[in-house]
Design a protein around this nucleic acid. Structure first.
Lengths: 151, 151
DNA sequence: ACGCAAATAGTGTTAAAACACTTAAATTTG
DNA sequence: CAAATTTAAGTGTTTTAACACTATTTGCGT
């Protein structure tokens, strides 16, 4: 559905404003879908995000700041989220030998199992997943325009 | 900056996954910018969102459900947000005469003044505003691709 | 070596989101 | 018309985000 219809907007919007609102609206829409898929697994979106990051650097771990710098939402509370993941058994924390300020966080076997259970493709390349109506070139164009948008 | 650089991603991503992450990342980036501009005015993003909606329907008011249906984030707590706006003097609430279940919310003069103070163009069409690097046709294409993405 | 600034992780607190539930009024149905 | 259903708004509670702050360790300059 077009943005104007979703938002029941009557007047036509300036094009850049339409782009801004559409980004925010689409992200909220995506978040909602993601939360619905994640709920049965007892994990939140930011926690899932961290697990994906840890999985990406596996078998190496990452410090808390490394995780933060790779997160979509940089203002979130990584220490507490990591602690949640540790309590759930999805991540491990070991003090860094060289620098005692640091803590190295690693995804656990259980955590890797969780990710494969969730089946990431459900959100990305799966048939019914979000964005399936876009062709690959269209998806590429979309990502490029977003990169340019943030410039 | 390109998404991969922002997220310090090493491996190449599937195109649709790249689009999904880019939408989420860009929205978070936008939110951050918006919060920075809004802070001096003592108003939050969802509150600003509601004020814009009320301003759009001025001089007519809207019921709480009408507001909710026009919001970017549909799961938020409109009653409490409206109460905050009322306490700050930016909105007014009057019971609906015909249907006593309903309450009609209207933007106040102070609220309209606040919006013009914030100068919405700062986020949309202003020179240094977000998305200023995009040409108008590019912004239009971006919005269309996002519409299609949600299909 | 000493003091100071930067870096790193974590905590405390307030405000907000998430979600289920409640109250009240209108509408439908038997 | 009475009871049940639906609709609208609001509330209670838990979890989380936001933001500023603290504590500890490291590195650096002198």
């Amino acid at each position: 559905m077009k943005l104007e219809a979703e938002l029941k907007s009557t007047k036509p919007m300036p094009v850049r404003q339409r782009a801004v609102l559409n980004i925010l609206f689409t992200a909220s829409w995506l978040d909602c879908h993601l939360a619905r898929v994640l709920r049965p697994f007892g994990i939140t979106h930011p926690q899932y995000n961290i697990l994906r990051i840890l999985n990406g650097s596996f078998p190496n771990g990452l410090s808390v700041l490394d995780i933060k710098s790779r997160m979509l939402d940089r203002s979130s509370n990584v220490s507490r989220l990591v602690e949640k993941l540790r309590l759930s058994g999805f991540a491990e924390r070991v003090p860094h030998s060289g620098d005692r300020r640091m803590v190295i966080v690693t995804i656990s076997v259980t955590g890797k199992q969780l990710l494969s259970d969730i089946d990431t493709t459900q959100f990305t390349d799966h048939e019914g997943g979000p964005g399936h109506k876009l062709s690959e070139p269209e998806a590429a164009t979309l990502a490029e325009l977003l990169d340019k948008f943030r410039d």
